[in-house]
Simulated scan of single mutants.
Amino acid sequence: MHFYSLRSSLILFVLLLCISDSESLKTLKNLAVKRGGSLSIPCFYDEKYKSNRKYWCKGYYWSTCTIVASTNTSGRTSVTDHPTQNMFTVELNSLQDSDSGYYWCAVEIGGLGTPDDKDYMYLTVSAGPAVSVINSRVSGQEGGSVSVQCLYSAEYQNKQKQWCRFKDWSCYTVGRTNTSQNSAVLVIDYGNGSFSVEMRGLQKSDAGWYWFSAGDVGVTVYLTLTRQPSDSTTVSGNTETELNGNTMVIWILLAVGLGLLLILATIITCMLRKKCNGNQIETRKRTLTTESPVTYSAVISKNKKASSVLDHENDVIYSSVTTTTKKKTVSVKYSHHHRQQLSQAVGDDAVIYSSVVSEYKV
């Protein structure tokens, strides 16, 4: 009786080790990668495992697998936990043929008789993998579109091709499919080893992990989305442009204003100089008038005969007198001799004084 009880316990233990709870932890079952390349493998877990340690284990049997890397370790193989997304990723770098084999995504549970949760997958590393992608990480913009180019080998030409999303494990086959997020997925198989996927009208919810598969072999792709520029950013850009334009106009107006002020100052300066010169000329005229109101002229009489009284006809003696200054020549048209009698003439060349009124010509 004791033997049968022990045998039943052993069988139950083996079953617990071999059974994978696909609802609590799951990943892809068959992946391929090119020799020397890199690969990212997502492992999704239940909400209850957020705080548990995650690790990556290699081996055909779970009971004998070897832990290659665990959470927060670095090296050629690393494990990174993303609690907000209920997943952890395994990064494999510089892969070689010897890296091919069975692996396990695992979550440490702890406690006696409580095995860790896990899910297995098989990895193939070769020079010419069955499936591959041009870029394993692509990016797009919300509302825009993104294209993914996939390749497959000739032996998989007649196999079913699919583009699948990890978030809800939904898959799209050849043709056009409108998703619930209003984005459209267009899948085209060119039949010559080339396969393309185009996603249009991208929404925020479209970001995340995808995989392309031909038959039962797949390869992972990660899609990153960026937000469209907001209206505030556009308005800010327009405002900045407008401010720059206004600044330029202000500088132009200032330059024109300064030019006009300079011209005005020049005109005023010239006018002041002319006025000053005019005042100097007027001052000189006044000086001449004041200093030389009377010019005396000597008139020589040609009448050699002495006479006590001048004849009435000779009351006025005309003479021409020219007064020369440094800058002016004063011409006198005539002189006037007042009627008077002279008692005596001096010699033959009598001198008669007269009052001369000057008329200036500048």
Results as ranks from 00 to 15, higher is better:
K302A: 05
F13D: 15
G144K: 03
D348V: 10
S183M: 02
R35A: 15
S98R: 11
G113E: 11
T322R: 14
N182A: 07
S354H: 01
D349L: 08
S213E: 13
E91F: 14
E198F: 01
I188A: 11
D97N: 13
Q341P: 00
G36V: 08
T80L: 11
E359K: 09
A207P: 00
H82A: 06
L272H: 06
C270F: 14
V351Y: 12
Y102L: 00
Q344K: 14
A265M: 09
K159N: 10
V249E: 10
N72K: 14
D117E: 13
P42S: 08
M121Y: 07
T266V: 12
S22C: 05
I19F: 15
T226A: 12
E291I: 02
R273T: 03
G208A: 02
C43W: 04
G208N: 02
A214M: 03
R35V: 14
L186H: 03
T322I: 15
T323W: 00
S180I: 04
S355H: 10
I281W: 03
G215S: 03
Y120M: 07
K204D: 05
Q160M: 03
N86D: 04
T84R: 13
V330N: 07
N244V: 07
V362K: 08
N314Y: 14
A214I: 03
V187S: 03
N93H: 13
A130G: 05
T329S: 07
T73W: 03
A306I: 06
I188Y: 08
G175F: 06
R339T: 09
C150W: 02
T241A: 15
H2C: 08
G191K: 06
K161T: 05
T295D: 06
S5H: 06
V362Y: 09
S232G: 00
R284G: 01
V332H: 01
N182D: 11
N277V: 09
D97F: 10
L223G: 10
L258G: 10
